[in-house]
Simulated scan of single mutants.
Amino acid sequence: MKGNSLSQVYYRPIEAAIRWAGLLRFQHEIVAAIIDSRHLAVTLNCPRCDELRLYIDRIYDAIYHGELPYGQNGITIDDKSLWDSPDLTIRHVDLKRWMLNHYSGQRPAFLFSRGERIAHPVITLEAGNALLVEREALKSQLEQCRSQLRALQEQRKKHDQAPPACTLCPLSDRAEATYLHIIGAMLTLMLGRSPSGTPYSSFNSQEAIASALIAHHGHLMGITERTLQAKFAQARRKLQSAVS
């Protein structure tokens, strides 16, 4: 079957490869440059030539190894004499099934509907690597926040254990603002999400953070539901006023 429509009932291997590579607008030039049933001219001048050659080779390789049914004029026939014939064709449904089994990460538009492509988005190697890099960066940021939290907890522990005379020493406005900024920033980060939508931590609410602190450190002075909620609210207001 010849034609310029994107999806057809069946395709010649070159027609399927052209659509797979997204080069349908160059189909006339590509078909005119065919040397035989499966080889293109070396001097073919169109975008992504190497990608197109790879797709042709993949299709024929699948045919040779019995992975992809083929035939003539849309009729499935297991006849090896057709391998080198320009009349060799592949049915749309067989090609789609083969791609799902062997190239499940790809969803070319001529085989898959828009809904299918949205439901199963293609993640390229580059995008996957970018997500991994982002994940490692977020893990590093989260560990920094945990280290800061542990440092604050240690400072508070030392403060609670200090001699009574020390309690008479007032906390300077600058020091208090610093602590509130740190607490507010950590709360915002721990409850936030990355640009890709990944949560920075397993906590989904301020109450969950307070509950975890009470569960682990409820024996310390100040680690109570009422005090934590008051300090959290104060810290977030302080942070908001600083960034406004």
Rank of each mutant, 00 (worst) to 15 (best):
5 S>K: 11
7 S>V: 02
7 S>W: 00
10 Y>H: 07
18 I>A: 03
19 R>C: 04
21 A>S: 15
27 Q>Y: 05
29 E>P: 01
31 V>G: 02
34 I>V: 04
37 S>M: 01
38 R>P: 00
39 H>R: 09
45 N>G: 00
46 C>F: 00
48 R>Y: 07
49 C>R: 15
49 C>P: 01
52 L>M: 06
55 Y>A: 06
57 D>L: 03
58 R>Y: 01
59 I>V: 15
60 Y>G: 05
61 D>G: 12
62 A>Y: 07
62 A>H: 08
62 A>V: 12
66 G>I: 01
71 G>H: 05
73 N>C: 08
78 D>N: 15
79 D>M: 10
84 D>F: 09
87 D>W: 00
92 H>V: 02
93 V>M: 09
94 D>E: 14
97 R>T: 11
97 R>P: 01
98 W>E: 08
98 W>Y: 14
99 M>R: 14
100 L>K: 14
103 Y>F: 14
105 G>V: 06
108 P>E: 07
109 A>Y: 00
111 L>K: 10
112 F>M: 08
118 I>S: 06
124 T>N: 05
124 T>Q: 05
125 L>C: 03
127 A>I: 01
128 G>V: 03
128 G>I: 03
128 G>A: 11
130 A>P: 02
134 E>F: 00
134 E>K: 13
138 L>F: 04
139 K>M: 14
141 Q>V: 04
145 C>F: 03
148 Q>D: 09
151 A>I: 08
156 R>P: 00
156 R>V: 07
173 D>G: 03
176 E>S: 11
179 Y>Q: 07
180 L>V: 02
183 I>K: 01
187 L>W: 03
199 P>V: 02
215 A>M: 05
227 T>D: 14
227 T>H: 13
228 L>V: 14
230 A>I: 11
232 F>K: 07
234 Q>M: 07
238 K>E: 07
